[in-house]
Amino acid sequence: MIGRYSGFGLMIVWAAIVGPLARWFKPDKWYAQGVSVFVMAFYATIVAGFIVRTFLFQSFSTPAGSMVPTLLEGDYFFAAKFAYGYSRYSDPFGLSTFEGRVWGAEPQRGDVVVFKFPPDPSIDYIKRVVGLPGEKIQMVEGVLHINGVPVELEDIGPYASEASGTARLQRETLPNGVSYSVVNLTDNSIGDNTRVFEVPEGHYFMLGDNRDNSSDSRFTVGFVPYENLGSKVVRLYWNSKGTDYSLRQIVH
């Protein structure tokens, strides 16, 4: 799960206060024009903020470690809402009821995506797209297999982890050339060897980069419908560790 971060609700409350206060000022006073301009600018800012959040970009925070090392707990990032077009889940108020997508675009393998948790669409999840519609996905001894072919995986070195002293940092390279780091906390974990998952049409298979500590398509998430895709992670703007390491991982 991930957390949303937005000052939009606060702006609405503030606007509800500023609007009535503005009417107390008499129009024949010297300061009336300035107050009117301020109020109009404030409401314009609210409208602009609504448009940006609904159609362009949304800010999120990372409350857990399922996407380590790409996103660390406490990181804040922007996600592009226009990347895959718009569905009923793009509406921040949940009022839309139309089916399918408008101006839809397919995600690319390796994209880091914010999506609605299929069993409960009120919850936002973030994972990486590894399996496309019609493909067969399987984990074998900790190695991702796509259509029976193992994905390139190489050890980079040890990874400092409070959960395990034997954690390893690895580089995974997908068939389309997208490369990123994953963490292997321990060998022979519950998700290291799975059955073959046949991805249905119109669905995607998601994995967390922290392979031994991620609830993803191997478990409760299951296959993610195209309609549930919300936005593509494009920019880390606050790194909890004070470095740009995670940003380089997202942009690949």
Rank of each mutant, 00 (worst) to 15 (best):
A105N: 15
P69C: 08
G157Q: 08
V113M: 09
S122E: 12
Q138V: 06
L56D: 03
P119D: 07
N147S: 10
L95R: 10
I126H: 03
T166Q: 14
R88M: 09
I146F: 04
L132A: 06
E172Q: 14
V68M: 09
D155P: 04
F77W: 10
G110K: 06
I123M: 12
T62V: 15
I123T: 15
L169C: 10
G65A: 12
F78P: 03
H145L: 09
I137D: 00
E172S: 10
I123V: 15
L174A: 08
T62M: 15
E73H: 10
G165F: 08
D155L: 14
D75I: 06
F57L: 15
V129L: 06
T54D: 06
A80F: 11
V114T: 06
H145V: 08
N176V: 02
K116F: 09
L132E: 10
V112H: 05
Y89S: 09
G100A: 04
T166H: 12
P158C: 06
V129T: 02
Y84M: 02
E106H: 11
F55R: 03
F82Q: 12
F82P: 01
S90C: 11
S161M: 09
R128W: 09
P133E: 07
I51N: 09
K116W: 04
P150G: 01
V52G: 02
Y159V: 07
S87V: 00
A83P: 04
G104R: 12
M139N: 05
S164W: 07
S90L: 09
P121M: 01
P92S: 08
V130N: 02
T70S: 14
L72Q: 14
V68E: 13
P69Y: 05
F60R: 04
